[in-house]
Nucleic acid binder design. Structure first.
Lengths: 153, 153
DNA sequence: CGGTTAGTTCTGCAAATACAGAACTAAAAA
DNA sequence: TTTTTAGTTCTGTATTTGCAGAACTAACCG
């Protein structure tokens, strides 16, 4: 597949978006390429060529993406190459994990509340309020997906 | 205020939690200290002493936290020191921003769908599905806060 | 068997990060 | 006015990161 300027520019922006989420540059760009590539499956070699980076860098980035469960490869009979693709199928799971992750802060808030004195009750009160909300939020996550399902039907 | 081992250990863990979110180490530790410190307001000097770091590092970290709107300082009559505190009051706003932020990926999904051909309709279908969910999710955010309010009363 | 293909692992380095320490600034105190 | 206080900005540096390139491995090919 031949990438237009528009494709390349979009891949770059998807790259920096993922960089901001803490991933290393090339990892984000590979996600971009796998999203934009029309077949959805891209060989190791094509990643190297399209992104103009070294084999070692691609190898490490793909190992990372597979370890994180964001990427898989398939093979074809009579062809030794590996064709990499995003696991778009798992977007519900992934999104749920992200939501749970941002609610992780509750664990710390609760620990903080345990070690705090009552010297600043106003502060403590706001923290308890936040903790309660996070608890409520976590409970609401499953029903969020259910309501989406219903709305779709 | 004198910090116990438990305090220090909790500050460190809150620090690494924030490091994983992309912040620099000291910034995370300062958030930890401001959370754990019983007065909630901590002078520049005390941050330097409690965390055992240089004034310059603290100055830069506090400038960053203030720019991000996560921290403010107040002064006291006849006292030139600045007392720094977290803006715990804004947790609703902050949390909403975080939710909006993870939904930012929709923008890219939609751009990707625009440049994609119909060569892989299955892939496109899943992406559209995800985009629809993200749209639904964004709409649901305000009602989430409302339902929490009701439940509290 | 040696040669090719497909990818991994190792080694090294350029650039970025995160901080220390010194020099500096601005305001208050003496 | 000089000195002290409180914090900022500048300069240098140890550490980490992100990647290139070479060496390596494992399977298949001729």
């Amino acid at each position: 597949m031949v990438l237009t300027e528009k494709h390349k520019e979009l891949i770059e922006r998807i790259g920096v978006f993922h960089e901001h989420k803490g991933m290393q540059p090339l990892v984000g760009r590979i996600i971009g390429l796998l999203l934009v590539h029309e077949e959805g499956e891209v060989s190791f070699d094509e990643i190297v060529e399209q992104l103009g980076v070294s084999k070692s860098a691609v190898s490490n980035a793909l190992t990372f993406l597979q370890a994180k469960g964001r990427c898989v490869y398939s093979t074809r009979p009579g062809d030794r190459k590996r064709y990499f693709a995003l696991k778009v199928s798992d977007w519900r799971e992934d999104f749920e994990k992200e939501l749970q992750n941002i609610a992780e802060i509750q664990k710390f808030i609760d620990e903080v509340l345990e070690v705090r004195t009552e010297k600043n009750p106003e502060f403590n009160c706001k923290m308890r309020d936040f903790s309660n909300f996070l608890c409520f939020f976590k409970q609401e996550i499953p029903s969020l997906f259910e309501r989406f399902k219903k709305q779709q039907a």
